[in-house]
Nucleic acid binder design. Structure first.
Ligand SMILES: [Zn+2]
Ligand SMILES: [Zn+2]
Ligand SMILES: [Zn+2]
Ligand SMILES: [Zn+2]
Lengths: 144, 144
DNA sequence: TAATGAGTGTTATGAAATAACATAATAGGA
DNA sequence: TCCTATTATGTTATTTCATAACACTCATTA
């Protein structure tokens, strides 16, 4: 977890960016959570001493972190999750468990290529790809 | 377009459901649009004589139509598009052009299977899959 | 005819995200 | 060092997206 912050710092430097205080706080909170979080949950905790802050502060931090690949936004339910691969630019699929709400990140280069070529046969040039799944994770399947 | 409504009616009957007036109006407006629409654009047009109606009316209709596969919701930007395959239950990928905003629907059984097995190797049982792309469509590429 | 269930109308509210403008901190260049 | 441009933050207000809750209608059926 502190590794994650250190890696994030290194990544920012390489990109000529800065991991400022609000950005760092948002990333820390997300990294400490075991499930994706809503923006307003972050807003209520990302201020000084864990107090609330204002929406734009958090949304700006989230935009920044998403752009660098340090955080992923789950479009289906507008939640955010820290990336555990420290800033990959390759696309990933995010599978969210309907029971425990934990998110699993899966790389899928081959799938991306298939979709890219499927799009291309229709003349569509893919620039961004979102793949999200819902279902049941292993732990919850065993517990059931 | 009138075909689409007829097919929708048939589909509803088969499912033991009814394509009531508000549902039909919403579907008609979506089918007539060449780009995905926001819910509040529908709200402002889905009433009697093209007048505005209330949010729950439209959201209920959208929920219904999405469940039957007659309409797809694009999660990235909370828009809705009429399906031109009249109620398939198979998953599809939706590619939205960043220039003209038109949506292209692509079936992807093979991709779904790859993702399903990728998920399964991690013990994750996939129940729902969202695949959305962004990029440039053929028309816009040629126009540029 | 009562009771059920599905669907709608309506009011109000909740939740997610951004616009717009002011202020502060930072980094270069003269 | 001082000025200036840039980057980021703080703050207020607003917009956009979605649902809760409750009353009402209408068809089905016991
Ligand atoms: Zn990641
Ligand atoms: Zn689970
Ligand atoms: Zn479809
Ligand atoms: Zn286009």
């Amino acid at each position: 977890m502190h590794d994650l912050i250190r890696e994030a710092e290194a990544l920012c430097q390489r990109a000529g960016m800065t991991l400022t205080a609000p950005r760092r706080r948002v990333l820390e909170i997300l990294a400490a959570s075991d499930t994706p979080m809503k923006a307003y949950d972050l807003i209520s905790k990302a201020g000084e001493d864990g107090r609330a802050t204002k929406p734009p502060t958090v949304y700006r931090a989230l935009d920044f972190l998403c752009q660098l690949g340090l955080v992923h936004r789950i479009e289906q339910d507008a939640t955010f999750v820290a990336c555990n691969h420290a800033g990959h630019t390759q696309p990933v699929a995010l599978f969210v468990c309907n029971s425990c709400l934990k998110a699993t990140e899966v790389a899928y280069d081959d799938v991306a290529q298939m979709l890219e070529s499927a799009a291309l046969t229709r003349g569509f040039q893919l620039q961004r790809l979102v793949i999200e799944g819902r279902g049941q994770c292993q732990d919850c399947a065993l517990a059931a």
